[in-house]
Structures are given as C-alpha cells and as structure tokens.
Design a protein around this nucleic acid. Sequence first.
DNA 1: TATTGTGTTAAGGTAAGGTTAAAGCAAGTT
DNA 2: AACTTGCTTTAACCTTACCTTAACACAATA
Lengths: 236, 236
Amino acid sequence: MEEQNKKILLVEDDPNFGTVLKDYLSMNDYDVVHAKNGMEGFEKFKKDDYDLCILDVMMPYKDGFTLAKEIREKNSDVPIIFLTAKAMKEDVLKGYKVGADDYLNKPFDSEVLLMKIKAIIQRKATDTVSDSKQFEFKIGNFDLNSKLRFLKFKDEETVKLSPKENELLRLLALHENDLMPRELALTKIWRDDNYFTSRSMDVYIAKLRKYLKPDPEVEILNIHGEGFRLVVNQKD
Amino acid sequence: MEEQNKKILLVEDDPNFGTVLKDYLSMNDYDVVHAKNGMEGFEKFKKDDYDLCILDVMMPYKDGFTLAKEIREKNSDVPIIFLTAKAMKEDVLKGYKVGADDYLNKPFDSEVLLMKIKAIIQRKATDTVSDSKQFEFKIGNFDLNSKLRFLKFKDEETVKLSPKENELLRLLALHENDLMPRELALTKIWRDDNYFTSRSMDVYIAKLRKYLKPDPEVEILNIHGEGFRLVVNQKD
DNA sequence: TATTGTGTTAAGGTAAGGTTAAAGCAAGTT
DNA sequence: AACTTGCTTTAACCTTACCTTAACACAATA
C-alpha cells in the first residue's frame, strides 16, 4: 500500500509567517494547503478532506473560532490546532469549547508543532480504525449517504438530512443492532452532555423515527437510561 | 441516570499541590487517585483501569517519563498529560515521543486543565465497542442479553428488562443451579441490605418468575433465609 | 401458634423519554 | 435593513418506565 501524505489545512493571514510554516511542514512530508483568511479557509475545507486543520485565531473578517465552528458543523471529527499570538485564558477556553485538539502560542517552536501534529494525527489513526471512509450505510430499505447527507428509500423518495440528523443517524448505523450510548452521541456530536443537549438529541431521535417510518422493519429503540438501538428486523 | 465518573490517576510528589489538585478535580466529578511518587503511581495504575493519567515530570526515584513508558507498555491507550515546572523544549519533545496527549507548564490555570481533560477524555470516548460474550446467557429456552437488557424466548417473544430486573437475572444466571445469596444481590445491586431493599428484591423475583413462565423447565426457587436458586431442568 | 420469611399485586412518586411547537440564530436574498 | 430559509435549541406537556412501599396472603420454622 502506498503511504499517502497527510493533508493539512493551514489558515493563516500573515503571508510571511504563513508561507514559512507551509514550507516547513511540506519539507516534513505533509501536504499543506494554505488559505489566507477564514473565508478562503472554509471554501478550501469544503472542497477536500483534511487530516488536520491549523487555524490562526486572529484573522480579519472571520476569526479562527468562527471558522472552527463552521468546520465542526460540516465534519465533527477532524482535529484542530489553534495558533494565537496572545495567551489569553478566555481564548484558550473558547478554543477547547469549540473542540480544539491543541493550542499553541506564537512564537512557538516548530519542532514542538511537528511533534504535536504527529501525536494528534497518530491518535486519530488508531482511534479511527476504519470509520474514516464509512459514509455509506444500508439500513433496511434505506440508503444513507452520510457524506452527501441524504437518506433514500428504495430508490424512490430521497430526504435531505441536516448535519445533526445525519451525524446521529450515522452513529446509530455504526452501532446497528447494538447499543449506541446517549453519552457517545452527546460527546461526539453535541460536544457536551447536559440536560439540554440531551433533550435536543431526543428531538432528533423523533425526527429520525419519522424519516424511517416508511420501512416498518427499521426502528429506533430506547434503552432506558442507556441510549438507543437501531434495529433492522429481517423477515426473509 | 447513573453516570460513571471518569477515573484519573494523578502522580505528583508535592503533597500540597497534589492534594489541592486532587480536591479540585474531585469537585469536578472525577474520581481521582493520588500517588505520591512514580513507584506508587505504577502500582496503583496496575491495580485499576483509568481514563486518564496526569503525571508530574520531576519526581524523585522515578520521573514522569519513565513512568509513562512503563504505563505505555502495559496499556498503550490511556491518555497522558504531563505537568512540568520548566518549559524546557527537550522535555516537551521527550514527552510527545513517549506519547503524551498534552503538556502543561506549572503554574497553570486550573480551568484550562479542566478543559484539556474534558477534550482528551471526550476524544477517547469513541467507540469502546463490545466484548459481547460477557453479557449473553442461555437460560433454558431463553436468551438473556444483559447489555441490551432483553430476554428472548425461542427467537419469538422479546421482553425488555429494567436495569434491576436485568442485573438480578444476570446474577442468578451467573450462579445457575447454585445458590445466589440474598445478601449478594442486595449489596451488589441495591447497595444496601435492609428490610425494604429486601422486600423490593422479592418484588423483582416475582417479576422475573412471570417473565420465565413460558418455559416450564426454568424456575426460580427460594432457599428459606438464604437466597434464591435459578434451576434449569433438562428433560431430554 | 407465634414469628419471621416469602409471594404477589397494586398504588404512588420520580425521572426519562416522546412529541410538537415556538423561539433563536446565522446565512443568504431582496 | 428587512425578509426568507434552514437548522438547532428551548419549552411545554404528555406518556412511559422504573423503583419503592404498602398491604395482605401464605409458608416455613421454632
């Protein structure tokens, strides 16, 4: 198998620093795409799949946090590292709330950055055994395309899914016939486990049940206090 | 709902700082075990399963890196955060080489630490999928799935079990044909052995008997003053 | 037979989940 | 700026699930 270089999206508005960093990473066998601002960053992100995002926090028009939120909406999995000039605590906290994987204060040591990148990507590689390319699922008579976010019933009706609907159904499908713990969905999709996110999730379960109604063999069961179970009854 | 607190192993030789940090984390709903040096840390690590390790780097006899290496040998998965007084680059690099998940310089902001812990544990929360065999029992013509909490009769009828019903039947199954002492169930499931919990248990025995009625070969017998016995009569 | 243990059913409280509607919110449009 | 639109959260109200307690019966044992 051919080792594919890892792809990094670097969003940094300072042109000098940006190009230097890009070159440095490229020299270390990463494929780097450099965007000069938040808007451009999001465009590039939508156009390709990345293994890691490195975002400058302080940028005109669209700062790193806002960009991170948008990225998380599209893909809750990709690791994110924030770069920031100042070490303000509020910023750091904000970063972790958006789901940062790490945080670096400028100026930083480039070797340290490399190690962090390595550590993070490696972590992802072991965590995410096979699910990186798992975007298509068969659920009874439905086809779920979780990359394009649609649910098709018997090549007939097609429903578009919102990001949350999509992620939730995907998680359920990954655990088909097995328990999908509440906590898992809440931490993975909502990134917070409290009363409100929990209720929000229930609302989404209701929506999914409605979508799945056309096929009586498919149902989402609740396991009280534990989570949900997507079951597909075979009739043969 | 019974949320299981995450378990943290804290290895820190400074007794003042250590206890303060431990208390702070405990207040934030983590179960913290505090070891005063590397050796003790490794002993405690071997004795239990942890969701996260926080290791001081500078410790007498056995420093944090050495400890981390030993931990990695036993369990390559557990996240590790290093604490260090000095921000020496060599140390940081060394830490990442041993597989650190994060790095904090003392003094650090406790809120930041909390966020990091949250982020890291959340990251880990990905699919700790099943060692299913431990949860499945055959009881006469019944199949008990104690993870998904259901009891199936001959691939026909399926009953959902409540947590208490499930745990009780599981305990009985573990002792099939043998005595399952009252006291065992009460301490393990009800966590208290008194008149009321005992009566409550009797109520659950009655419920289980009803569920098991479809198979006349299966019954729950009482052993007066001792406990119960789940018997499966073979006919052949 | 007195006492204690068990069998069983029903009532009641609390927490979790189901469902629908309204309120928020962030883009993009007019 | 005001208006739409799509998505998400919050709120409200109701139902279901779970567990305990009470009550009354019968069984076992001393």
